[in-house]
Design a protein around this nucleic acid. Structure first.
Lengths: 156, 156
DNA sequence: AGGGGAGGGTTGGTTTTTCCAACCTACGTC
DNA sequence: GACGTAGGTTGGAAAAACCAACCCTCCCCT
């Protein structure tokens, strides 16, 4: 499973090591929607049952999901996001937004989110300090590990 | 490559079909940092060269990256994000934020971003309409396709 | 003219994962 | 006592990932 040696140290890579495998983020999507039972996950995600079982174990081990019994005799569980799992929701929201914008330009979205404010929810990523919407040109990257640099201009 | 039949229609799944394979988002990270040359990508990501070549082809086909010649004779390219590619940056930023918070609690982050406002950049996902920071309990999901529902409570 | 290095890949063969259908267990129901 | 439901596990075939080695074009050095 390990790739070549000594890649750039990076929280993105570290996070993807936990949730970057096929189906993992779709599992999180479903549990965030409240569909946390095994057969629901199989149906809604379209994943093979054995792979799904593997992913669920991994996400529980990582503290992203937890099993909640909803029936003793027979013993039945459902999976729910932990607090850490819920904190991954922004990743899902930004992925959804990109897909909505670039892959469904016709306007018939598969899912619409409604915010408590009464409007359709569209995520905007902002700077915690100043509140401005993020723009690539407004960010400067400072690697902390020695030997790792970043390059020049990045515009297309 | 196809999973079982008839999963939930979803922009998240659609987006992950383009950028969800192993290394794809790390490629995007590097090109957003300005490290768009093949050997840089190999070194910084730690991916096998053949897999990387496959991913690059796919990302170019998807309109997320573009090849830019930086030398004729010999012909050399570098990969850069297109506008659509740059618009995926929020996904990277939210992944980074989660990893910073949950995987590097000791405080020694691999990379620090600086916003143009002068402060460390920490992404916050907000509602475009009202500006409030998103919270799971403030969202309601409305699937648009018939037959697809969402479940009950989702709290952990 | 020959050798070496950089850059951007491709190729062949092995190892891992994924996929799929079938099966298993423990109930509860008809 | 046959059938259905929920939540998996198992075995074998197909697909991906992995790795080292190689290729090609050009430049530079001697």
């Amino acid at each position: 499973m390990a790739a070549s040696k000594d890649p750039r140290p990076c929280s993105i890579a570290d996070t993807l090591a936990l949730v970057g495998e096929k189906y993992s983020l779709l599992v999180l999507r479903e549990v965030c929607l409240g569909n946390g039972r095994f057969d629901q996950l199989v149906r809604n995600i379209g994943a093979p049952r054995d792979i799904l079982a593997t992913r669920l174990r991994r996400l529980v081990d990582a503290g992203i999901l937890a099993k909640h019994p909803y029936s003793e005799r027979p013993r039945r569980f459902e999976y729910r996001p932990t607090r850490a799992g819920l904190e991954l929701e922004p990743v899902l929201l930004t992925l959804k937004e990109w897909g909505d914008r670039h892959l469904h330009r016709d306007g018939d979205l598969p899912m619409v989110l409604e915010h408590v404010c009464g409007n359709e929810f569209v995520p905007v990523v902002t700077c915690r300090a100043c509140g401005d919407e993020v723009r690539h040109e407004h960010l400067a990257a400072h690697p902390q590990a020695p030997g790792w640099t970043v390059g020049g201009p990045t515009a297309a």
